[in-house]
């Protein structure tokens, strides 16, 4: 009886772990990389997002300090949409912002921008 119970707990545990993974990365692409993972790659790459040039990001090497560290994003932006707008064109909120308008100027593609939003939203 106890053995069965342990097995049952194990099974539930395994299921919740899998479910948990899905909860963190709900969109899994054909290449098996989630939007969050792809977003991280784009954010760290010097030729695409290059966010580290100005922002400190947990897990990133040699960051700049021109702009605020990317932490506690959910307390700084009311919604993903608001964060999306900030990366799309930061001068909407602050006309003197030095941040490049990644979306408006097509520095990264729509899809890449969406992935970056997914990643930054987790920080």
């Amino acid at each position: 009886m106890i053995g069965t119970r342990k097995k049952l707990i194990g099974l539930v545990g395994a299921i919740s772990v899998i479910a948990g993974q899905f909860a963190i990365s709900p969109i899994v692409s054909a290449e098996g990389m989630s939007a969050v993972e792809k977003g991280k790659k784009i954010a760290f790459n010097r030729k695409t997002g290059n966010c580290l040039a100005c922002h400190n990001i947990p897990g990133g090497q040699a960051p700049g300090n021109i702009a605020p560290a990317l932490i506690a994003m959910k307390s700084r932006f009311a919604s993903k949409e608001e964060l999306h707008q900030q990366i799309w064109d930061a001068t909407i909120k602050n006309p003197e912002s030095a941040m490049p308008p990644f979306g408006k100027h097509g520095i990264i593609s729509e899809q890449q921008l969406n992935d970056v939003v997914e990643f930054v939203w987790t920080l």
Partner: peptide, 19 residues
């Protein structure tokens, strides 16, 4: 495309670290 004026780097952010 990156939308910078000279002033953004060498005035507004002088002394800051870019990478």
């Amino acid at each position: 495309q990156l939308n910078f004026a000279c002033a953004h780097c060498h005035l507004q952010n002088a002394g800051m670290i870019l990478r």
